[in-house]
Every structure is written in structure tokens, then in C-alpha cells.
Amino acid sequence: MAAGAPLITFDKVWKSYGQGEAKVHALAGVDLAIQRGEFVAIMGPSGSGKSTAMNIIGCLDTPTAGTYSFMGIDAGRLDRNRRAMLRNLYVGFVFQGYNLLARTTAAENVELPLIYRGVAARERRDLAMQALSQVGLVGREHHSPAELSGGQQQRVAIARAIVTRPTLLVADEPTGNLDTARTHEIMELLTQLNTELGLTIAMVTHEADVAGYAERTIRFLDGHVASDSKNLEVA
């Protein structure tokens, strides 16, 4: 990858569902670029295409037409397993519903991506503890999700996302289930990861004040990028 090239590039990306008359374009020729180290908020009403865009960014989905390149790789044309490998190596995911494995301790949840990377048990444990301390959850590693609050669960999820030292963090409404105080804490944590680790973050949100934590806001509408602006006040 050439120096200075964007981490993420959408080149006339289309994503269509259905056939013939019923054909729906979730994305209709989107052009987009996200640089390394950026913290981008993605907004837009439901059906605007923002979730589809996020799935493509996270290498979970592929475009119907156009090119999605991630780290200079034409990720839209990779098969399932290669994309899985890409996700495992370079992408961390944080979801609105936390998506932790129930009846599995915090530490084990955090270790999960490392298992698929083939990391040895002891090293996994060490890395998981390190990630948990980065999100401020030392001492909770043996709790199961049910024993943790929503904010703590989301911290575990963030630890799981960063334990592999990814290049990109994809966050899908990470504070959607949290109250204001918890939201603030989580957003502080994400901002800190962005600045301290240089982690590129793409975050979907509905709330303008959450989007305010990011440096840049991209608004989707009807499958197009409606606006793309730098945020003036960085929280």
C-alpha cells in the first residue's frame, strides 16, 4: 500500500437487493475515502444505506458493483474465508447489543478472536488481560456478561475488538443501549483509543452528540452520501 493512500476507498459502490421491478439499491454508486487514524461518524435515517456501507467497510459484505478497497486490497472480491481472515487480522467490531457470548467469562470473550488466529492459550490470556486493562475492566475478567452492567459489557466488547490490535474499529451504534453517563464514558474510551493507538474508527450512530465525538461525519440518504464534513468542535 502506497504511503498516504486512504485506508478505505469506495469507488462507485453499488449494493442492490432483489430482482427486476422489486430491485432495491441500498447503495447507489457511493464514492468515499477514509484515511488511517480517522474517527468517522456515519449517520442517516434507516434505509439510507449506512448499515450496508458499514457491513462493506467491515468486510462482512461485498458490493454488487464498484470497488471496495481496504488497505489497498480489493476486499469486495475476496471470498468468505479470505474476508474472515481480513476481519480477524485488521478489523474489530463493536455492536449496539454488545454481542458477547453468554455464560462465558469476560476474559474468554476477549480471547475469542485470538483463538481463530491460533494464538497459544497463555499468550491469549496475557493479551486479553492487557486489553481488559486498556478498557478499565481489571478485576472483572472472570465475570460472565450477565454479571456485568451494560457499560461494562460494552467495554468487554471493545476489549474483544482491540485485542487483535486491529487497524480499523467498526462500531455499530455502540452507545445505543446505554444511558447518558455510560455513553459519555464509552465515547471517551473510543476517542482515547483513536488518539492513543491511532486506531481508525468508523461508527454508526443516530445521535448527533455521539457523532460529535468523531472528527468527521458522513451522512447517508437514499443510498448516497448526502454530506461529508469535518466536525468543528472536537470533544
Binding site: 462482512l60 474465508n81 476481519r87 454481542n99 475469542l112 481463530y116
Partner: peptide, 14 residues
């Protein structure tokens, strides 16, 4: 859902 999580964080089909 568990399968979804595992796949998302990099589990292969196998």
C-alpha cells in the same frame, strides 16, 4: 447469533 459473532470476528467456515 453466537455463530454470527464468531464469523464476524474472523472464524472461518471450517
Amino acid at each position: 447469533r453466537e455463530i454470527g459473532i464468531r464469523l464476524a470476528i474472523g472464524a472461518h467456515e471450517k
